[in-house]
Every structure is written in structure tokens, then in C-alpha cells.
Amino acid sequence: MPDSKKTFQLDDREVPFREGQTIFDAAMAAGIFIPHLCHNPDFEPHSSCRLCTVIVNGRPFASCTQPAVAGQMVQSNTPELRDMRRMLTQMLFVEGNHNCPGCIKSGHCRLQATAYELGIPDNHYQQFFPLREVDASHPGIILDRDRCILCGLCVRISRSVDKKNVFAMTGRGIDTTIVVDSPSGLLVDSTVSVDDQAVLNCPVGALMLKRMAFDVPFGDRTYDQALYSEDSVARFQATEANRHG
């Protein structure tokens, strides 16, 4: 249990934390949602999507990697930060090819759910319409790079949890893309399998199991039932309760 003596100020609340806990983890444990996309609290943080940026004692930091310190003043739910999170989310939409009406991840997708919750009606920026390769070679898994937000979760999870190193990043800057470890570069020739955590934890529709398109009808899907913030906090607290009692 958190040491009740140690707290920091998050917006208008005192948030308790354990030594070594990040601002993000302490906030979520206290039921305060901080938007995030590249981070999945079940795995190591990466601080690359920057949606979880908060202002700590006047300076911006990614809350998913920033340690909580007693007495610090943290701002998260401010109009400025909400605007910035909207811009970051719009950027993720325009750099890829995110076609929600044609995507079977719709309703389960964290990018989409984040955008809903931030109240984003449009992409605002020029869309890049990049040409990215779709890899449908594997009998059970599809890699649709059009929908990839480069969060790197598959790379990290395949390395540290699945112990397979199926995925890596190549390219640089706006040309960064996922590569698959196999002689052909195709999923079918790799060691990936349908129960890989790397595949199952893709926050968007980039890595998906085939033949699962209509497992849950539209309207009944994860984020049709609950806001991303509520769902995410509830999951986090359940995991915390399991780990720390």
C-alpha cells in the first residue's frame, strides 16, 4: 500500500505514492486518468507518444517515466495540455492511414478511443497518405502498417515477454516503420504466433488476429461500453490490487 505520508499535488488533488513509483502509476492508482498510447501499464514504459506529458514544478515531463517526488506540483488536466494532447493525437492520425469506417479494430482501438475522449472532430492537419506495406502472409495474424502508431509495444513485448524478438523498427523520422524478423521479412516466415503478447497488445489495428473481425458487434465493443479513461483506470487498479494486495 502507498505510504500515506508521501504525496504530491496533481491538479487539485493530493496523490499518495510508493517510493520509485512514476507520476503516471500513482495517478492511475488514485483513479486519475492520464491519456497515454505508447504505454501499457502491464509493460515497461517508453515515453514516446508524449500524450502523458504533465507539467512538474513548471517543467514538462512524460509522466509514464517520471518518478513521483513528495511535494511536487503536477498539472495534467489543464486546457493547454488537453490542447497539446489533441494535437498529438491528430498527428498520429494524419501520419498513417487510419480509416475507422473500414477498420475492424474500431471500437477496440485506443487511438480512436483517445480521440473520442479528447473531443476531436477532425484531423486538422494535412494527411500524409503514406504508402505502407500490409503483411497478410501469416495464416492467423495480419500486420497492417497503415494503422501503426509506432508506439513500439510489439517490439518491446516480443523482446521482453514473448522472448522472440519478432519485431524491430527500421527507417528514421517520418519514415520509421516496423520490420519483421524473418529471412523474407514476412510474418509467415517468422516465429510469431497467435498467442504472442506482442500481437495481442497492439493498441490499434496494426497487429490483429485474423477471423476475429466480428467477435463483438459494433456498438458492444470495449470503448462503446466504457470510456477509455474509465476502462484504463479500472484495469490498472485491478492489476495493482493483484500485485500489491
Binding site: P101, A115, L118, G119, I120, F218
Partner: peptide, 10 residues
Amino acid sequence: VLPPSLIRYD
């Protein structure tokens, strides 16, 4: 300004 509950892309 649409509330989040009315924002859907699908």
C-alpha cells in the same frame, strides 16, 4: 461543440 459521446468515426 460535440460532446465526446457524439464523436464517433465509424
